[in-house]
Design a protein around this nucleic acid. Structure first.
Length: 122
RNA sequence: UGAGUCGGUCAGGCGGUCGCGUCAGUGGGAAACCACUGCCGAGGAACGUCCGGGCUCCACAGGGCAAGGUGGUGGCUAACGGCCACCCGGGGCGACCCGCGGGACAGUGCCACAGAGAACAGACCGCCACGACGAACCACCCGGCUCAGGCCGGGCAGGCGCCGCGGUAAGGGUGAAACGGUGGUGUAAGAGACCACCAGCGGCCUGGGUGACCAGGUCGGCUCGGUAAACCCCACCUGGAGCAAGCUCAGACAGUGCACGUCCGAGGGCGGCCCGCCCGAGUGCACGGGUAGAGCGCUGGAGGCAGUCGGCAACGGCUGUCCUAGAUGGAUGACCGUCACCGCGGCGCCGGCAACGGCGCCGCGGGACAGAACCCGGCGUAUCGACCGACUCAUCCA
């Protein structure tokens, strides 16, 4: 699981990652990864948040999907640079995917999105 | 052995690796917090949010009118629209099951289609009386012929045909429903017109039951439709909002304009409206600005289990014992192994003429419905399956 210090908690943090400056995004049919790295958080540990909408399923399906994503993300924390925030959004297909599939997808998308971080920094 | 009815229990077990949350302890740190160790960590429906209660705040000055809910009887309960027992009606051979079960002589409305007629009913066919007209097929009368059966001629309006005016609810047909049923008397034909029995309705009496109601008797006019999940009437019940309730602390900013008003009273409260009562010096609207942090509430309670006593039961009394989820972008998870369980396929063995059944091994697949958010009692709905108990019917054996 993800330690509390690595979690994204407030709605303003979410909004900053999804729409703020210095952001990057990559997606697939399973999940969409948003990332942002701002000067304000430079040096702080990376944080990850999850968005699983009602389109994915009922409360049980939604919670399980979120938990599996969180478990997968926890094993990849050291690959995320300090000061970066991530938001992983689950698409409806994610509920049926296996953990291995989700892990591979996350790796692929991280590889695409992380190099672009900070590139647009002023 | 087969078919079935009712009730209940469980919601895969064990192990490994990596993790999460509350709390406690230890250590580090000025603090935020971090590390380690330990305990505990979703459900029978946690669900839907359909009822009921606790709890919290507001009000407590009432009355009338509205509004909503409930609806056989008796009990249980904190309470209920829940539960139990019984009654009535319906279904089943039966165990049992089903019923939004007050009132249709308080009033109003509605009863489609079909049908002649649908609510103080109705004459389409049919049946019957009377009257007018028609014809000579049958019957009847007269005459003649023939051995006879019969034939020929004439008459006649009883049958017949048609029309008119009436009677008739027995019969046909329509319908969910046609103004009781069967048999008789009666009649032109018929009819509760009358009679007997039966069914039903109402009154009274007797007996049983706390009661809904049941049983028996007697009398009555002879029969009076359904719908209240249509309005309505009757009886009973209901104050409002909800844990984002509410309490405490901390923190932030900036006002301006208009309207009404300070005892000739704006505005507010008393669930909606009216009356009435109370408070009352500020209030309402528009624009602009600010904050949306922390703690408490927060989990031990109408609680579970066992025994015993009362009760048909729901349930209650007593005794003993056991009871550790409290998150807040929201913990209780991810992955793997193994053993059980179920389904399908294959092989082997056993029983059998066979269909097939049992056991063992191997392979593949499956494990539902669903996630606490203040807490309880219910109801409703979803659900792969596994197991237990009681009872009924049928068949066989003793």
């Amino acid at each position: 699981m993800l330690p509390a210090g690595h979690r994204l908690r407030t709605s303003s943090d979410f909004a900053a990652v999804l729409r703020g400056p210095g952001g990057a995004r990559a997606g697939s049919t399973l999940i969409v990864v948003h990332a942002a790295q701002t000067d304000a958080r430079a040096g702080h540990p990376p944080r990850v948040g999850f968005v699983v909408s009602k389109a994915v399923g009922g409360a049980v399906v939604r919670n399980r999907t979120k938990r599996r994503l969180r478990a997968i993300a926890a094993t990849r924390l050291e690959r995320i640079p300090a000061g970066a925030d991530l938001v992983v959004r689950a698409n409806p297909a994610a509920a049926q995917a296996s953990s291995a599939q989700l892990g591979a997808e996350l790796d692929r998308l991280l590889a695409r999105v992380l190099p672009r971080l900070g590139g647009r920094r002023r």
